[in-house]
Design a protein around this nucleic acid. Structure first.
Lengths: 221, 221
DNA sequence: CGCTAGGATTTTGGATCCAATATAAATTCT
DNA sequence: AGAATTTATATTGGATCCAAAATCCTAGCG
């Protein structure tokens, strides 16, 4: 969930934020067409900024566009899912290997703060707050690599599965697991142990991949 | 250069193709602002499809957008360059490892055809035709992996340095080198030797990275 | 001579309107 | 009755117009 902070400067940004949230929460369901006229009216804007926002989401693969047919919310097949996680594995390894030696004490501090926010949100059962904090946790690490494109690609990959991540956090046992694994990740960062960090991130992802695969297999049947 | 083939179905696509070419050939120079009104008039279209095309290019990092300031053609610093090539190394390794066992005889045939087109274009000194064929050569390999997102990311990375690639092909010695290296790549594919293929692709890139680094270092001084 | 302030101009962002295409419905024909 | 064809409707794509913001230019001041 890479939302812009503060009040939106332009209408397109406002619309973009709204669309991201609507997709994330499932209010715009995967596979459903996006009726520009209705949506624009609902938001109290014209179709122009809406269309520009949709073009951004199209570039990120969040919506599918066919000329003269319009936009629809993207659906993920199981194989798409596996691709996203495989690419995350590869790219996040690169990111953290670059980042680990660059990270300052403040970075590590922010990492811990984000983790605490995750735990707090988990306790009070706020799923979206938890997802947001979790994202901040992981991207504190990724951003530290200082590679703009890599960061962008990873944001796209995270966005693609955001809907399902919220589902994952719904379960109590998964929330505990996240807490434990995050602590392990922080530990590896402190020790500046790149191999251990990569290993722990891999393990961290594996859990979610398993849960998602199961979920999707059920859905598609 | 991922242009749409055939006549454009919508004006946005027409404009998008035009913009890609203009950026590729340097007619829209890196760092220069894009005046929407003038450009739209020049193309004989309104600003609406132009803006949508620009949004696509923004997503690909080809242009930079700042609200209320408009769009400008992206500039690559040396570090951006190195990032692009590092990411290509990582992602292309993944792509070809997946692809190598999936490739059919027809795929390999198309690979050779593309190579022959590269050589032919090189002989007659047609730089853009050479770049196009070269791209087809490499993406025959990459597409065979059957990973949509990976393919998209790699297209973005290739686009980012297209301008400079044409420069590289300008030199006779480089053209010979490309011929030789491509033959080695085909050989590795035929032998289904993934490790050798990855190695040869790495070597293939190394040559261009060296030339580009030198060029950029001169430019930025 | 340089710097700031004010206004004119350019340029972007968004709304509305119209045309072209796709989708849905109705009618006709077999 | 079912399929095909025509007609009607809904929806997208693009053009034009207007408002708001940024840039540029000039005049006034230190």
């Amino acid at each position: 969930m890479s939302f812009t902070s503060g009040p939106p400067q332009t209408t397109q940004q406002y619309v973009l934020d709204h669309l991201r949230r609507a997709i994330l929460t499932g209010r715009l369901a995967p596979g459903s067409p996006i009726r520009q006229d209705a949506l624009a009216e609902q938001l109290g804007v014209s179709r122009v900024p809406l269309r520009e926002a949709l073009k951004i989401l199209e570039g990120e693969g969040q919506v599918i566009y066919r000329p003269r047919r319009g936009y629809m919310v993207a659906e993920l097949a199981l194989e798409d899912f596996l691709e996203v996680y495989r690419l995350r594995q590869i790219l996040e390894e690169e990111a953290v290997r670059r980042a680990i030696d660059k990270m300052t004490d403040e970075d590590i501090e922010r990492l811990e703060e984000a983790h605490e926010d995750v735990v707090a949100a988990a306790k009070s059962g706020e799923i979206i707050a938890m997802a947001t904090a979790n994202r901040r946790f992981h991207f504190t690490l990724i951003d530290a690599a200082g590679m703009a494109r890599l960061c962008k690609f990873l944001n796209i990959l995270w966005d693609a599965t955001d809907v399902y991540r919220s589902l994952y956090y719904g379960q109590e046992s998964n929330r505990e697991r996240v807490d434990r694994e995050h602590r392990g990740i922080i530990e590896a960062v402190r020790a500046r142990d790149a191999d251990a960090l990569v290993q722990r991130l891999d393990d961290h992802r594996t859990g979610t991949v398993g849960a998602f695969s199961e979920f999707l297999a059920r859905r598609d049947s």
